[in-house]
Design a protein around this nucleic acid. Sequence first.
DNA 1: TCTTAAACAGATTATTTTATCTGATTAAAG
DNA 2: CTTTAATCAGATAAAATAATCTGTTTAAGA
Lengths: 145, 145
Amino acid sequence: MTVIFSKKCEYGLQAVLFLSAKGTGEVVSADEIAKRLNIPKEFVSKILQSLTESGLVSSRKGKAGGFSLAKHPALIRLIDVVAAIDGLAIFNSCVLGFPNCSPDHPCPLHEKWGQLRSSAYSMLTEQTLDQLKEKTLNKIAHLEA
Amino acid sequence: MTVIFSKKCEYGLQAVLFLSAKGTGEVVSADEIAKRLNIPKEFVSKILQSLTESGLVSSRKGKAGGFSLAKHPALIRLIDVVAAIDGLAIFNSCVLGFPNCSPDHPCPLHEKWGQLRSSAYSMLTEQTLDQLKEKTLNKIAHLEA
DNA sequence: TCTTAAACAGATTATTTTATCTGATTAAAG
DNA sequence: CTTTAATCAGATAAAATAATCTGTTTAAGA
């Protein structure tokens, strides 16, 4: 198998999109997020904790506590979430796993892959949570099959 | 961390490119491949065995044995190697990990990601081993730092 | 024919990723 | 003040991936 983002990152992106769909200030518990997205509660809880440390999410303890976005969803780009969880190594390392892959010593796919990769990077940099709100709401509405 | 291809697939692609750079008929031992590419011998050996089952590589046992391409390098596309090792799931599954991601119930990135993904697929389908021979030779020449 | 060097087969180990558990702290609400 | 429901912290378990080991079969070459 092959993967773009780790499970951690997928869940993190889902959760953060979910929060943005809820409304900026709204506090949502890990339990609700987990149930709604069908992902393990303890896992998403850990992920949101780490996003809290990263400053993308803020949390409130105690009864009626939970998570909310730390910034306006227009200020959170997908790449920020990816960077916080998986890091940006995928955008800097050789797709074929060759060492020292660089313009000086390019791997056979250096050019062609580089183009795709920078398109992907641009896309994740351009897309912010608020831009995706409508689509997120639609997706969430159809989640339970 | 995040990954496009598994280690298995990276090594497989490297090995197959190495074979194509050697010349179509030439038999190369797993030991030589492993040393030249700085990858674990037993691991690459297993991978080449599985590519032999897939019909992309052929093998010869006994002394002076080893591996060679089973077809002309113009007939082996990168996607064939990827399909044989990692499968094509990455080109069919939701980048955000949402279930039932489809044109009917698209995830927030369905469109934009779909475009990138199909560009990647096209690229891997267009590129054959022989087209990459020159670049592969160059990369191999600069391998030990 | 004997030695050597290779693929091959299957089991095992190690590492990383994913997921869960246990208990502590915190704060709302009766 | 007590109950309840949440985050949080750290340990642990389970699963997947990566890597290694052990021995067998095969074939070239001295």
